[in-house]
Design a protein around this nucleic acid. Structure first.
Lengths: 233, 233
DNA sequence: TCGCATATTAGGAAAATCTTAAGATTTCAT
DNA sequence: ATGAAATCTTAAGATTTTCCTAATATGCGA
């Protein structure tokens, strides 16, 4: 994930709440309490989705919605009060992809955001994090990311999820050295990394064991002292 | 798919939005902002469905609806403002097959379009383009998607709707791993809130039970820990 | 040799899945 | 509409698998 989401609501509590929930899902949030401040963001940032309150003090939320639509096609979700007059709501879907009535359950909001992003990215796959080839081949080693299968010299290699990820990353960066910290962040993203954490080392150990690789004469995973690990190109 | 759909709404944003959503589902869209322009399209194009705003400036949507009905039998969906029941009923009796009140969620709209098309094409099979094979076969397992029948080693397997869907999805993606979340979205699309992922687990359990599959040595549904389920190719 | 980086080990912690059963919901015949 | 049957969902605990920690050992380079 890591999609960029615009949030505009003059009610600070709601904007903040939305922000917290979205951030907890690893989205990048651009939060504004007024439409005018948001305008610049719209111009300058490559967003993936927008959440707009329909009632803003300085500019109608619908106007903002239409401003976005002038140049962008990413999903827009409107926040509406439940008791607004029907007439006003009638024009609501003008350009919006979904609407959520206040008060709403945060988890429902998050679910809808995800649903829209899923749809958007399916339709616009270029925005999705690069699509990689599902099979990686390297001297007697075959990895199929789709089937989660791994063969070593024609024989199946049973790898756990994490082991599979480490081997995949090393193979994708075949030839260059990858530090333990880099591996850590590729796999666990944001989580805190400390040097005393030898988790990666242990997984590497297991990998080598399953692949019959020795530390002294590694056929696959080589240790570059003080730098990291690598698989020769 | 690839059905031809007429969209008529004088509110440009709504017409455009509907167009985008339908196009993303690979429908061919004929979009008009006024009834008069649409008339010619109705005459000259072999449409599969029409979506009409009930309130148009140059001609009543219902009138347009009746014009279509003079010569065509494809489904018509009316867009209506959130008003009284009267319009709804009237609209339906005047030849429309479904109505959607504004504001609406585009995804719901798409779902209804699909539902109408399904119904329509069932009675007009000639219009269906090259249907995919309705039977899936895999080592002793025969699934007929049309009749919803399933045989395991010549003997009938009684599956519920959800079980059938899960098995079908796994077989369609035979070989690759499908996560519980993916299964969830394939089956329930954009539903949100609760319905913990455990639901899938329970259905998988029932499936395995009916198929005499064991968790330890599964012949069909294998668990890839931390990733999902798969059926070997 | 010393200091630091990596390797090895194993057991407990954590996470994911399985199992079960009860309650909710839907379906269907009456 | 009503109730029974089928199906689905939820919840809690059991089980399995995987991960992480911590303590110790080993190897590299200055």
């Amino acid at each position: 994930m890591g999609s960029k989401i615009l949030v505009v609501d003059d009610e600070h509590e709601i904007a903040d709440l939305v922000e917290v929930y979205l951030q907890s899902e690893n989205f990048t949030v651009y939060k504004f309490y007024g439409a005018l401040e948001a305008l610049q963001c719209i111009e300058t940032t490559e967003l993936d989705l927008a959440i707009l309150d329909i009632m803003l003090p300085d500019m109608n939320g619908l106007t903002l919605c239409q401003k976005i639509r002038e140049h962008h096609h990413y999903p827009i979700i409107m926040l509406t009060a439940k008791d607004e007059e029907t007439d006003k709501i009638t024009g609501l879907t003008l350009g919006a992809d979904d609407y959520i009535t206040k008060p709403f359950r945060p988890l429902e909001m998050v679910a809808r955001v995800k649903a829209q992003l899923r749809r958007y990215k399916m339709y616009n796959p270029s925005r999705t994090e690069e699509a990689v080839s599902p099979v990686i081949i390297h001297s007697g080693l075959v990895m199929n990311v789709d089937t989660h299968e791994c063969l070593l010299n024609e024989k199946p290699l049973m790898l756990t999820k994490t082991e599979f990820s480490i081997l995949r990353i090393l193979l994708e960066k075949k030839g260059s050295v990858v530090s333990a910290e880099e591996l850590f962040h590729e796999i666990w993203q944001d989580e805190y990394y400390s040097k005393s954490n030898n988790t990666i080392t242990v997984h590497i150990r297991h990998l080598r064991e399953k692949m019959n690789d020795t530390v002294e004469h590694p056929k696959y995973i080589k240790t570059i002292w003080g730098v990291g690990y690598k698989i020769e190109a």
